[in-house]
Amino acid sequence: MSGPNHPGIDAGLSAELASVVSGARRRALRDGDRQIDTAHLLHSLLESDPEVRAVFDGGPQVARLLGYLVQRSIGYGLRWQSAVEDSGAGPVVAGGRWSPVAAGAMEEAYERAVLRGDERACGLDLLAALVADPRSRAVEVLGRAGVELPPLLERIESGCEECVSGGDAG
Rank of each mutant, 00 (worst) to 15 (best):
M1K: 10
G3Y: 11
N5M: 13
H6F: 04
I9C: 00
I9W: 04
A11H: 03
A15L: 11
A15Y: 14
A18V: 05
A18Y: 09
V20D: 00
V21W: 05
G23E: 10
G23A: 09
A24T: 01
A24I: 02
R25N: 13
R27Y: 05
A28T: 06
R30M: 12
D31P: 09
D33N: 04
R34M: 12
Q35W: 00
I36T: 04
D37I: 03
T38Y: 08
H40I: 02
L41Y: 08
S44E: 08
E47T: 10
E47G: 14
E47P: 08
D49W: 04
D49C: 11
E51K: 11
R53D: 07
R53V: 08
A54I: 06
A54G: 06
V55D: 12
V55Q: 07
F56K: 03
Q61T: 14
R64G: 00
L65S: 06
L65M: 01
V70G: 14
V70W: 15
V70Q: 15
I74W: 15
I74C: 14
G75M: 00
G75F: 03
L78Q: 09
R79C: 08
W80N: 14
V84G: 07
V84L: 02
D86A: 12
D86N: 13
S87A: 06
G88N: 06
A89T: 10
G90S: 07
G96E: 01
W98L: 11
S99H: 00
P100T: 12
V101G: 03
A103M: 05
G104P: 02
M106C: 07
M106V: 05
E108G: 14
A109G: 09
R112L: 12
R112F: 09
A113Q: 07
A113V: 06
V114K: 13
V114L: 09
L115V: 09
E119C: 00
R120K: 14
R120D: 10
R120A: 12
R120N: 12
R120Q: 12
C122K: 09
L127H: 09
L130D: 05
V139N: 01
E140D: 11
E140N: 06
L142W: 00
R144W: 04
R144E: 02
R144M: 06
G146F: 04
V147N: 02
L149M: 06
L152P: 02
E154T: 10
R155D: 02
G159W: 01
E161P: 13
E161H: 15
E162L: 11
E162F: 08
V164M: 13
S165W: 13
S165R: 15
